[in-house]
Simulated scan of single mutants.
Amino acid sequence: MNRGIIIGVIAMAAIVVASNILVQFLLGDWLTWGAFTYPFAFLVTDLMNRVYGTSAARKVVFAGFIVGIICSFIGTQIIGEFGPLVTLRIAIGSGTAFLVAQLIDVLVFDRLRSGKWWRAPLASTLIGSSLDTAIFFTIAFSAGLAFIEPANDVSWANEMVPLLGAGAMLPLWVSLAIADWGVKLVLALVALIPFRVLAQQLTLRTA
């Protein structure tokens, strides 16, 4: 396997592991520290796609997916104050969201790769991030999907509260999702800077 792709796999694995650890630590009422590390998974995928192509990007995605499964399994074995750190719904939501969002990211990036340099990474990351947030929070916490894990009480996530503390009354998990999505959107813009720099450097090294 190409050295650059191996580095991509290692970077993706590091982001997935770090995010699974940091998601356990709250930051304010709506976020966890993991919200600030996980979005960089899209940066790694887009860099692999730009420099090495879609096949390499998918390899990195699947490597991250496998690492995520391992992290979820470990989390199910660790019992916290309110039960396992990772429930079945969270594991399914996390894995499904990651795989679908990242593969869509790869597809969108490839379709737009011939345009302006920023268009492909920005569009693919925005679409992928939106899908990731919607899929994960819906599967993990929506009352309508309680049948996935009937024994898992997610009533706390479905408590009706003002949206982000000030808006319409909606389930708590919706505020959590929107806050998470907002961080992803901001970081999608910020990540354009390292994407531009790293893509140029990696392209020169492979030339």
Score class of each variant (00 low, 15 high):
Gln102Val: 03
Leu122Ser: 06
Ala140Lys: 01
Leu103Tyr: 09
Ser129Phe: 02
Leu112Ile: 01
Arg89Trp: 04
Ile90Ala: 09
Ala134Cys: 11
Ser130Asp: 04
Thr138Tyr: 13
Ala120Gly: 03
Asp110Pro: 05
Trp118Val: 10
Arg89His: 07
Ser142Gln: 12
Ser129Gly: 06
Gly93Cys: 06
Arg119Trp: 03
Asp110Arg: 11
Ser129Val: 03
Pro121Arg: 12
Ile90Ser: 07
Ala91Asn: 02
Ile135Ala: 14
Ile127Lys: 08
Ser124Tyr: 11
Ile104Lys: 00
Gln102Ala: 13
Ile104His: 00
Gly128Asp: 00
Arg119Glu: 10
Ala123Gly: 10
Val100Phe: 11
Ala140Glu: 01
Trp117Met: 15
Gly115Lys: 11
Leu103Glu: 13
Ile135Trp: 13
Pro121Trp: 09
Asp132Pro: 01
Phe136Arg: 07
Ala97Ser: 15
Thr96Arg: 07
Leu122Ile: 09
Ile92Pro: 04
Gly93Tyr: 02
Arg113Phe: 03
Thr96Leu: 14
Gly93His: 05
Gly95Ser: 01
Ser94Asp: 13
Gln102Gly: 06
Ser114Gly: 06
Ser129His: 01
Gly128Val: 00
Lys116Ile: 02
Trp118His: 09
Leu107Pro: 00
Leu126Arg: 04
Ser129Gln: 03
Ser124Gln: 09
Leu112Cys: 02
Leu122His: 05
Leu112Val: 01
Leu126Asp: 02
Ala123Gln: 07
Phe141His: 13
Ala91Tyr: 03
Phe137Tyr: 09
Val106Asn: 13
Ala91Trp: 02
Thr125Leu: 03
Lys116Phe: 10
Phe136Lys: 08
Asp132Lys: 12
Gln102Thr: 06
Ala97Asp: 14
Leu126Ala: 08
Arg113Pro: 07
Gln102Pro: 08
Asp132Ile: 12
Ser130His: 03
Lys116Leu: 05
Trp118Asp: 08
Leu122Phe: 12
Arg89Asp: 04
Arg119Phe: 07
Ala101Val: 08
Arg89Leu: 08
Ala134Leu: 12
Phe141Val: 14
Thr138Cys: 14
Ile135Lys: 13
Ser142Glu: 12
Phe109Ile: 00
Arg113Trp: 03
Val106Ala: 15
Ala140Cys: 02
Leu126Cys: 08
Ala97Ile: 14
Ser94Tyr: 06
Arg113Lys: 15
Gly115Arg: 14
Thr96His: 07
Gly128Ile: 00
Asp132Thr: 11
Ile135Thr: 15
Gly128Pro: 00
Gly115Ile: 02
Leu131Gly: 09
Arg119Asn: 04
Thr96Gln: 07
Ala101His: 07
Ala140Asn: 01
Phe141Ala: 12
Ile90Cys: 05
Pro121Val: 11
Leu99Cys: 07
Ala101Gly: 08
Phe136Ala: 07
Lys116Asp: 04
Ile135Leu: 15
Leu103Ser: 07
Asp105Gly: 06
Ala120Glu: 06
Thr133His: 04
Leu112Glu: 02
Val108Tyr: 03
Ser94Ile: 04
Leu103Arg: 03
Ser114Arg: 13
Leu131Thr: 04
Arg119Gln: 14
Ala101Trp: 06
